[in-house]
C-alpha cells in the first residue's frame, strides 16, 4: 500500500479502532497508545499489506497488542472515565446502554473483544477468527456465551428495577 492508501486507512478506520480499543481497555490513554502503535506498525509494513485488507490488519495488530498490554499490567482501576460521545437518546436507551456497559465489564477479555468486534465492527465469525487467532467454532461458542451472560445480567437488572 502507498502512503496515500495508508492515510486513507487512517481516515477510515482510526476512529473505529480507537473505539474498539477504548471499549476493550476502558482507558483512554491506553487506547490512544494502542491506536498509534498499531498505525505505526501498519506504516512500517505498508509494503507488505494490501490496502483493501488494512482494516483487518489494523484490528489484528491492535487486538494482540491489547492482549499483550493487559497481560503485562492487569489494572482494574480506570484512569479516565470513558466519555460517552453518543448522540442524544431517550432515557430508556441511555439506561439500557449504561446497563450494557456494566454488563460488558462482566465479560472476560476475549468475550468482550468478540462482542465488540461483532457488534461495533460487524465482522463475521471467520473474520473475527482471523483477527483473534481463534477458529470459527471458538468464536461462535465464545460469542454465544457472552450473549447469554449479557442477557442474564439484563434479566437480573430488570428484576431489580
Amino acid at each position: 500500500m502507498t502512503a496515500e492508501d495508508y492515510n486513507d486507512c487512517v481516515k477510515l478506520y482510526a476512529d473505529g479502532l480507537y473505539r474498539f480499543m477504548l471499549k476493550s481497555t476502558r482507558q483512554v490513554e491506553d487506547a490512544r497508545d494502542l491506536v498509534q502503535s498499531s498505525f505505526e506498525k501498519l506504516w512500517e509494513h505498508r509494503s507488505e499489506v494490501n490496502a483493501q485488507k488494512c482494516k483487518s490488519y489494523l484490528f489484528t495488530i491492535a487486538y494482540h497488542k491489547m492482549i499483550d498490554m493487559n497481560r503485562k499490567n492487569r489494572r482494574l482501576d480506570f484512569r479516565e472515565t470513558v466519555p460517552d460521545q453518543a448522540g442524544p437518546s431517550t432515557a430508556t436507551t441511555t439506561l439500557l446502554k449504561e446497563i450494557l456497559e456494566e454488563a460488558l465489564d462482566r465479560l472476560n477479555e476475549r468475550q468482550r473483544s468478540l462482542v465488540l468486534l461483532k457488534d461495533y465492527e460487524g465482522y463475521s465469525y471467520e473474520e473475527i477468527a482471523e483477527i483473534t487467532g481463534l477458529n470459527g467454532t471458538q468464536v461462535k461458542v465464545t460469542l454465544h456465551r457472552a450473549r447469554l451472560i449479557l442477557k442474564e445480567w439484563l434479566v437480573s437488572v430488570e428484576n431489580v428495577l
Binding site: A14, D15, L17, Y18, R19, L22, R32, V35, D84, Q85, A86, G87, T93, L96, K97, L100, A103, L104, V115, L116, D119, Y120, A146, R147, L150, K151, L154
Partner: peptide, 13 residues
Amino acid sequence: LQQTVLTPQEFVF
C-alpha cells in the same frame, strides 16, 4: 437476546 447487541457509539481519535 436482541438487547445484548451493542449499539455502535461514535468515538473520534
